[in-house]
Amino acid sequence: MEEGIRESLRLLLEFDPYVYNIIGVSLRVAGLALLFSTLIGIPLGTILGLNNFRGKPVVTALLYTGMGFPPVVVGLFVFIIFSSVGPMGHLGWLYNVEAIITAQTIIAFPLIAGFTMAAVMQVDRNLLSQLMALGATKFQAAWAAIKEARVGVLVAIIAGFGGVISEVGAVMLVGGNIEGKTRVLTTAIVLETRKGNFGVAIAFGIILLAIAFLANLSMIYLQKKHLFEDNG
């Protein structure tokens, strides 16, 4: 472990281009996947949380299944879709970051939607009626509901980020772990471990944990006021 910490500091301080490229690809992929999954997950979770319709139990069950879906199966699905014989093979996304982003978005959006739905369902129904009676449109009332449930929605985004940043199976499958192109921190850890470079692998692990910690800390800081002062 000590060797890992030393190695991670050395790699970072020496501005090793190999390492910084991997960090860069990881952040870009995770950031975009989180953005897309948030853009899908929050509206979907809000719609499901605020509305009752026929088939809602089925949609909810599908969503919950998606929350626990094995990422490697998502990877397989995305691989088939983007393979040269697949329906979207013409895009040439396989073994590119686009395929990784797609897979990670599919992995993360059910998590974000599911947690958002649960959070929004806790918002007082009388408040929503009241907002409509004050002249809010459905969109404005839904936006107010998201703001009221902001702590839960933040947890949803953090859960989605956790799903994205820690993913390895699907990324390996659809990205191919190509150096300088689709190699991210998780797949680099797998590779370095297989090569017996435990120091480097641990160093990547520490960097990954540090990134996850800092990202979560920033998100928490953004909502600090509401998380620690306004949840009564």
Partner: peptide
């Protein structure tokens, strides 16, 4: 028209 009419309910529902 919706915005010409409003209700005040028995239990005040306020935003956080």
């Amino acid at each position: 028209i919706m915005r010409e009419i409003t209700t005040v309910f028995q239990r005040p529902a306020l935003l956080k």
